[in-house]
Structures are given as structure tokens and as C-alpha cells.
């Protein structure tokens, strides 16, 4: 019986100490990890779609809470005024969610540019979305109210050959971004303006 108690006590104490240590480390590294994810996962896409911005769009960011989800918005300044906001949405592709960073021009409410952040699409087919600039260019300049559709669904977006599912996912993600932008337009613009100067 004493053996039993000792075993229980040892395991309990060991597990709780371990839990405590991990919680402490998790807490103290959380911010840094978030920063690293921004820099290495979303960062390259953000910098690419905000080419020519005079600020660092990764550090000039704000969040908007809708429901219980928080979305990060990145602000791009051109000639000193915050002109572009970008945020990430995703939609189901062939091999899991496809993450798309969509940048809107806050003055015209048109899409400025889109970029791919994460995907798990078939290498050589859907994965080409990463590099296929001509496909992505089709979204540039679309008004926030215009719903894009791929050509197979009767729309004007020409899907990447052999990768209709991925093309649809990108289109759906862009649509989600448009809807979100439209709904939160005033909040987004107010917050973006606070980066003036």
C-alpha cells in the first residue's frame, strides 16, 4: 500500500512540476513565436504584395475581433499615408486549407494584390499557385462588391490548368476577404488611419 501511495505521489508531483514549467515557458515565448510566425509564414507574402511600401507592414498592424476570432491587419504606407491593408483568409483546397493574403486599397476599395501564405496542394499542380503570377493578377483591381468566380463556374477568373480545386479555393478565400472587408469597412479604415504620420 505504501508503495502505491509513493508511486502516485511521485508521478503526480513530477507531472505537475513539468506542467508548471511548460506553462511558464509557453507564456514567456508566446509573443516571440507569434512574431516569428508572422515573419516567416505570413511575412514573405505580406512584403511581396506591399512592394514599395515606405513602412514595415509587419510591425504596423492592428487586430479586429469578429465573433471570437481575431484577424491581424497589416498596414502598408505609400508616401506617408496608410493606403493599403492586408489580411489573411483561407478556404479549403485539395490538400487542406489554402491561406491567402489579400490586400485592399482603402481609398478605392479595390483589391491591390493577393499572395499565398500557406498551402498543402499537390506539388507541381496546385502548388503552382505559389508562383503563378498571371493567375493571381486576375484578382487585382476587383472591386470589393464584385464576386469573382472561376471560368468553370461561369465567372471570369481563368483557373490554373489542372488545378481547378486550388483555383476555386483561392477565389473562395478572396471572396471571404471581400465580404469581411465590406462588413468591417469603417472600422478597418479608422484603424488604418491611426497609423498616419
Amino acid at each position: 500500500m505504501r508503495d502505491m501511495i509513493k508511486m502516485v505521489v511521485v508521478l503526480t508531483v513530477l507531472s505537475s512540476l513539468s506542467g508548471g514549467l511548460l506553462a511558464a515557458i509557453k507564456n514567456s515565448t508566446e509573443d516571440r513565436i507569434e512574431g516569428q510566425v508572422l515573419q516567416f509564414v505570413q511575412g514573405p507574402a505580406i512584403l511581396k504584395i506591399m512592394e514599395g511600401a515606405s513602412n514595415d507592414p509587419i510591425s504596423d498592424r492592428f487586430t479586429i475581433t469578429a465573433g471570437d476570432e481575431q484577424t491581424n491587419f497589416f498596414v502598408g504606407k505609400y508616401n506617408g499615408t496608410p493606403k493599403v491593408v492586408a489580411f489573411e483568409t483561407n478556404a479549403a483546397g485539395y490538400g487542406g486549407p489554402v491561406g491567402i493574403m489579400v490586400a485592399f486599397d482603402v481609398e478605392t476599395n479595390k483589391i491591390k494584390s493577393i499572395g499565398v501564405t500557406t498551402h498543402n496542394e499537390t506539388p507541381g499542380v496546385g502548388s503552382l499557385v505559389e508562383k503563378d503570377e498571371n493567375f493571381k493578377k486576375q484578382f487585382v483591381g476587383l472591386d470589393v462588391t464584385f464576386e469573382p468566380k472561376v471560368n468553370k463556374d461561369g465567372g471570369s477568373i481563368i483557373a490554373m490548368s489542372g488545378a481547378t480545386v486550388t483555383s476555386r479555393a483561392v477565389t473562395a478565400a478572396v471572396r471571404k476577404a471581400q465580404v469581411f472587408y465590406e462588413q468591417h469597412q469603417s472600422e478597418i479604415k479608422d484603424k488604418a488611419k491611426s497609423f498616419t504620420g
Binding site: 513539468s18 511548460l22 515557458i25 516571440r32
Partner: peptide
Amino acid sequence: IIIATFVTVVELMMQAYTY
């Protein structure tokens, strides 16, 4: 328990410093 704890420590540290 001991090993898993340290592995998680390493994992968090690598995420934070050598992403």
C-alpha cells in the same frame, strides 16, 4: 514525463528563436 517536458521546451525554444 521528464523527456517529453524537455522536448517540448526545445520545441518552443526553436519556434521562438530559430523558426
